[in-house]
């Protein structure tokens, strides 16, 4: 055992010095502000989740734990239909946008720089740069015209609109992945007698996998959460879950909405956490 009187200052000194350095960087009130941000961002959602488990009809007073509202929500035909429409649209939009984004990402990273590359980036990111309400009414105008000319109706319009605004979201992680993947691996495969198609299927695609998964998950979440474009374009019988929730809120607040909202939030959060894990694996 070391003598405590000599051991003490030896262990206390470096700690003190470290605190001094950290103090130099710290600004008064910044830590509190950061925590305030977190509270602001999370408190409303946490309250909503908590009251979705409230036994009472009241969304004000807590009386006890219950899963009744979830049972009610799941039995509600309106909610079930809306959920099914949401999933159908999101799946279609995810598949189309992920394929299109993967191809575009390959074109912008695996071929030589070309004239007009900036324009291509601009077009792909265009849905991100314009206020959603503008895209929404513009798309509505186009679809109204197409409907008038062709007489075609149906959920296809919504699916296509979702696919369009999902492309930039799917494109981001796929392009990022391709940019960190060195071309050397593909060259090594070609060097070992793999023809271009085999290089793609045996090396590029498997390594790009995590990026594609990340892109698809983002596209799915973004499609699932969309309100404005869907609200403007959706025809009768094409109510998605967010649109159903918006209508229900306008009619009045019920714990049932809290339950559906909690489910939707949970799906998004789970997907994003999964994505986070995939990306951490990618970095290794």
């Amino acid at each position: 055992m070391a003598d405590p009187t000599t051991a003490m200052p030896a262990s206390a000194q470096p700690r003190q010095r470290r605190r001094l350095v950290r103090d130099l960087k710290a600004m008064p009130g910044f830590t509190a502000t950061a925590w305030l941000c977190i509270v602001t961002l999370y408190l409303p959602i946490l309250v909503l989740i908590a009251f979705s488990f409230n036994e009472n009809r009241s969304v004000v007073l807590w009386t006890g734990f219950s899963l009744d509202w979830y049972a009610k929500a799941l039995e509600n035909d309106g909610i079930r239909n809306a959920a099914w429409v949401s999933v159908k649209i999101a799946l279609f939009a995810t598949v189309i946008s992920t394929i299109a984004a993967t191809m575009a990402a390959l074109a912008t990273t695996r071929t030589k720089k070309f004239a007009g590359q900036g324009l291509v980036y601009g077009i792909i990111n265009q849905p991100l740069m314009i206020p959603e309400i503008v895209t929404a009414i513009a798309t509505l105008s186009l679809f109204a015209l197409v409907k008038k000319v062709t007489g075609l109706t149906g959920i296809g319009y919504l699916m296509l609109a979702h696919a369009a605004f999902c492309i930039p979201f799917a494109y981001m992680p796929i392009r990022a992945r391709l940019e960190t993947m060195t071309l050397t691996l593909e060259q090594a495969a070609a060097d070992l007698y793999a023809p271009p198609l085999k290089v793609f299927t045996l090396v590029t695609l498997p390594l790009l996998g995590p990026g594609i998964v990340a892109g698809a998950m983002l596209a799915f979440v973004v499609s699932l959460d969309d309100v404005i474009i869907t609200l403007m374009i959706a025809g009768p019988g094409e109510t998605t879950l967010p649109i159903y929730i918006l209508g229900a809120i306008r009619r009045g607040i019920t714990p049932e909405i809290n339950a559906v909202s909690t489910i939707l939030v949970a799906v998004s959060v789970l997907l994003v956490m999964l994505l986070f894990l995939v990306q951490r694996r990618m970095q290794r």
Binding site: T184, Q187, A188, A190, D191, L192, P196
Partner: peptide, 28 residues
């Protein structure tokens, strides 16, 4: 093209395929 030349390369950073085992790399 490189896949039609009976020439092989050892790359500076080895460029081993990370999604394959050692044996799969060698047999590629």
């Amino acid at each position: 093209p490189p896949h039609r030349r009976p020439i092989n390369t050892v790359f500076q950073n080895y460029a081993l395929f990370p999604h394959m085992t050692v044996a799969e790399n060698i047999g590629f």
